[in-house]
Write a protein that binds this DNA or RNA. Structure first.
Length: 489
RNA sequence: GAGCCAUUAGCUCAGUCGGUAGAGCACCUGACUUUUAAUCAGGGUGUCGCUGGUUCGAGUCCAGCAUGGCUCACCA
């Protein structure tokens, strides 16, 4: 970033102070600094620390001068603590560092723990060290940084002045750690598979394209790790998971970011019902570990994550919420009539399976606030899922909805290479017909299946959406440190 | 991609009917050795998002553009 040629007065004043410090032989950008305590250590253990010498460091967030003494607040990883600096205690040179210090500067303070007569636990300084001079003014102490665009573009400022933002990202970290701990203790192996793929598979989505110069080939940023993880089942790894980024070249919204984090896991010799129980257990357990409760509130709505969760066959859901009984509808033609009757825009070669999905999304999805497993998706929209034994028009699959959002997707994995190849073929035809989100043919994946993949259950959970739910965040941008933004200028 | 809304000082925001640009915090000068949204006295620091248009005169009215937010579309 280029330095602005014209500095405003606030920035000029800070640069002047920087120069004055240097002129007095004080280096404004300091070195390694040994702390003995964090703010919370002192606040939580005042009784034992009172009168003891401590060394703390942090950012100056407020300053209250009183002539030849002054108070200030110092913010570190764990919060804030008040410091008290007296000319008589620290001497002329150190006191000048304190008086010259601006809000935003990073200071090191050696001092003694005490409590003021108003009862605030504080550190009375014996030595003040300038560790980093701040050259830009921080937003106002009372309102913080409200401008949403600036909060996302300059997250570092947001994190300094809005403490609740830091809490969200600490919670995010704990959620992911809880998930890893759960899976690790259930014999799942964490693996990493390619982000750059010659054939992007495992989901219906438009990919990002990039180019490898030395190989002179186009590569795609992955839209899902699925096909690679299942190759590992073929290889005998039996229980694998990956928590990592997917990339989809689609619109940006409060629920979508071009790169987002997914958990995918596969369990050999299991099926979608195992995945259902695992999902229920994993998410409720994570809420309990991280939040200490399974009864949460999302944007004013009470959500109860206590198992068991509702299981709702997809056709029952449609009958209940849209009033259409698809057990009586057997042809694509009949399905198109039914969808039209509901006021949906219907493509002239839409299949029965596609329309079941359309009707579901329109009439059922918005109603599913409490955790609900929707079970039994049409095979047309599930090209990687195993068919149901009783009725091969459907798959052994579920999606989990909470707060009307898809949180998880799971199925019994299709391990018949001949059926899989035919389904890819259908996708390729749809692709040729203009559907650029349809799957491409992945010959090597078929090759892997031909060696034999154990029957397996597979599961995907959108981590960002789960974090939104558990941190009561209305936008995905609130749970991503650096959400995608259009560059300025 | 479409609709609606927003954009004024470093930050949070006012700005009436079109008539010389405002407040609080922050900042600067001075006072003050237990304050805490410290206090007291003084000081306004600005490309009113950008470009055009209407007008004697535009922060204000009109058009276009940019960025952002929300909703919808697409999707997880």
């Amino acid at each position: 970033m280029t330095v602005e040629l014209e500095l405003n007065e606030l920035m000029r004043v800070r640069r002047d102070k920087l120069a004055e410090l240097r002129a007095k032989g004080v280096e404004p950008f300091g070195q390694k600094f040994e702390r003995t305590h964090l703010s919370s250590d002192i606040l939580d253990n005042f009784e034992t620390l009172e009168g003891q010498a401590v060394v703390i460091a942090g950012r100056l967030t407020a300053k209250r001068g009183h002539g030849k003494a002054g108070f200030a607040n110092l913010q570190d990883l764990k919060g804030q603590i008040q410091i008290y600096v007296r000319l008589d205690d620290v001497g002329e040179e150190n006191y000048e560092i304190f008086t010259k210090a601006d809000i935003g500067d990073i200071l090191g303070i050696a001092g003694t723990v005490f409590k003021t007569k108003k009862g605030e636990i504080s550190v009375s300084a014996t030595q003040v060290t300038m560790l980093s001079k701040s050259l830009r003014p921080l937003p106002e102490k009372w309102h913080g940084l409200q401008n949403v665009e600036l909060r996302y573009r300059q997250r570092y400022v947001d994190l300094i002045v809005n403490p609740e933002v830091r809490d969200v990202f600490m919670t995010r970290s704990r959620i992911i750690r809880a998930i890893r701990n759960y899976l690790d203790s259930n014999e799942f192996l964490e693996v990493e598979t390619p982000m750059m793929q010659p054939i992007p598979g495992g989901a219906a989505a438009r990919p990002f394209i990039t180019h490898h110069n030395a190989l002179d080939i186009d590569l795609y940023l992955r839209i899902a790790p699925e096909l690679y993880l299942k190759r590992l089942l073929v290889g005998g790894l039996e229980r694998v998971y990956e928590i990592n980024r997917n990339f989809r070249n689609e619109g940006i919204s409060t629920k979508h970011n071009p790169e987002f984090t997914m958990l995918e896991l596969y369990q050999a010799y299991g099926d979608y019902e195992d995945m259902l129980r695992l999902t229920e257990d994993l998410i409720s357990h994570t809420a309990q570990v991280v939040l200490g409760t399974m009864e949460i509130e999302y944007q004013g709505e009470k959500i109860n994550l206590t198992p068991p969760w509702t299981r709702l066959p997809m056709l029952d859901a449609i009958k209940q919420y849209a009033g259409v009984d698809f057990t009586q509808i057997t042809s694509d033609e009949q399905a198109r009539e039914a969808a039209k009757g509901l006021g949906l825009k219907v493509d002239k070669d839409a299949t029965r399976g596609n329309l079941i999905n359309d009707i579901f999304e329109e009439f059922v999805e918005p109603k599913l606030l409490q955790p609900t497993f929707v079970i039994g998706h049409p095979v047309e929209i599930s090209p990687l899922a195993k068919r149901n034994v009783q009725d091969p028009r459907y798959t052994d699959r579920f999606e989990l909805f909470i707060t009307a959002r898809e949180m998880a997707n799971a199925f019994s994995e299709l391990n018949d290479p001949i059926d899989q190849k035919e389904r890819f073929q259908k996708q390729v035809e749809q692709r040729a017909g203009g559907d650029d989100e349809a799957h491409m043919m992945d010959e090597d994946y078929i090759n892997a299946l031909e060696y034999g993949m154990p029957p397996a259950g597979g599961l995907g959970i959108g981590i960002d959406r789960l974090v939104m739910l558990l941190t009561d965040s209305p936008s995905i941008r609130d749970v991503l440190l650096f959400p995608q933004m259009k560059p300025r200028d």
